[in-house]
Design a protein around this nucleic acid. Structure first.
Lengths: 261, 261
DNA sequence: TCCTGTGAACTGGTTCACAGCA
DNA sequence: TGCTGTGAACCAGTTCACAGGA
């Protein structure tokens, strides 16, 4: 991991939130939104940690990096905490994204309805295929709720015009590096890459990669090495419902694998 | 992160590959496939590390966990290494997956054409909507290249019949926990969750989560805190092309953010 | 009493630097 | 000579455990 020159370790810079913490803030925000929707006004670290899938001590330490917004003996005020985390993460302002590659995945991401709620808007759609260029795409709840797919050749112009904060690459692997280079040249410094390839980028650009195949392979590894020595799966502290399988009905609170990290 | 009772620290168990290493093996495999395609027969740790976006020492240490398959003074044999990593990760056998939730994202994932190449096949598609149940979906290159969407009510039967190794959840957040519970009850122990919610699972089940919103928010954080003090972006060791923007044409080899952890 | 906030211990992971072999 | 393999140093992140405030 490497981020921008942002690690300003200057004398008067309290700006030092660990990367691992930052990756979890969206999780907390999501959990807080759910709690607020339930009408809750206060949460303890234990409750919020549970809802976020982390250890309570972890949660408290993470939040302590943002300042002291809890009340001892009581917990955290849901609304206040949402505001504080939101401010840190930048969800107070709206960020534009441009999506390059309007195949199955690109289209699916374009029509993702959760952008607005999280402070994002799709500003432009780009593809290289003549068959797609010029087509109009309807985006539920997006600011311009209809976007015209623009040509890959115009990518630089599109980026300069739309000034998106983030570029999303959903092209085939072969095209990804070229798209990335041109995004960077046009001034983009944050890229979300769904193409199964490693992007070479200059200093100062942040790339996050999501790869379905990689995720599946990691799960396959665990699957393969989950030796079932007659006690690994069944002999947990979970009740079994007589068919030798864990009961589904129960709350099933348990440990879980960390999210992406 | 938490995986199955697989951490068999028994006396004669050399089975101790760190999780962080496992998460990178698919990356190496991908890079090796690309190198093999280029006709390369041998790679040094430096070259492979470059192609995978990691530090050479990291790569060597990772590979050393699988055994010694390199030749000092020369490097690694591409074919051998592919085989070894493939064997570890389980890509020697084929794994079936079931996808639950055939909205935009589910459909996009279903028609992802990279499954076969990585040793996966889609065994079943499930959705709760009457409008979708019964519809046929064409899957390029999949074993049954046409699948009929099955009803959510039949999920347990579908899982028991298809015996998938991995369940993929692409339902709305509200439905995800229910689907997960029933998957687990039906015997699934590896789940890939795209729904923006934390799944509560019993011991012995491995969940990996991918959340678009979370990724965007992490990037937004970096974007917001990438103070541009007139020297953060431009004043790197990258050449500028006169327009004050980094040149796009150059190789742009540089540091990069780690892939997903 | 019950919770937060945090120093301190610990764990896991990364990088360095070099010994050792082709 | 040029590379791998790996102990040792280092660093980041997690968890513990408790002091201290509402």
């Amino acid at each position: 991991m490497q981020h921008t020159g942002a690690t300003a370790t200057g004398p008067g810079a309290p700006r030092a939130i660990p990367d691992a913490t930052i990756a979890r803030l969206p999780l907390y925000l999501r959990a807080l939104a759910a709690l607020a929707e339930q009408g809750l006004h206060t949460v303890s670290s234990g409750e919020l940690a549970d809802a976020s899938g982390v250890n309570p001590a972890q949660l408290r330490k993470d939040l302590s990096h943002l300042g002291s917004y809890g009340t001892r003996g009581v917990g955290y005020d849901v609304a206040t905490l949402r505001t504080r985390i939101g401010a840190q993460i930048g969800s107070t302002q709206q960020w534009s994204v441009v999506i390059v590659g309007m195949g199955n995945l690109g289209s699916a991401l374009a029509s993702y309805s959760g952008y607005a709620a999280r402070g994002f808007r799709v500003a432009a759609l780009v593809d290289a295929s003549d068959a797609l260029i010029g087509q109009q795409v309807r985006l539920e709840g997006n600011d311009p709720d209809v976007l015209t797919i623009q040509g890959d050749a115009d990518l630089a112009d599109v980026v300069r015009a739309a000034q998106p904060a983030i570029g999303i690459i959903t092209t085939p692997a072969e095209a990804a590096q070229g798209v990335c280079d041109r995004m960077v040249a046009a001034g983009l410094t944050s890229i979300l890459n769904f193409a199964p390839t490693v992007l070479q980028i200059p200093e100062g650009v942040v790339v996050r990669a999501v790869d379905l195949g990689q995720e599946l392979q990691i799960l396959a590894y665990h699957q393969q090495h989950a030796q079932i020595p007659a006690d690994a799966v069944v002999d947990t502290d979970q009740a079994t419902s007589g068919n030798g399988l864990p009961a589904a009905a129960e709350p099933a609170t348990g440990s879980r694998e960390e999210v992406l990290q």
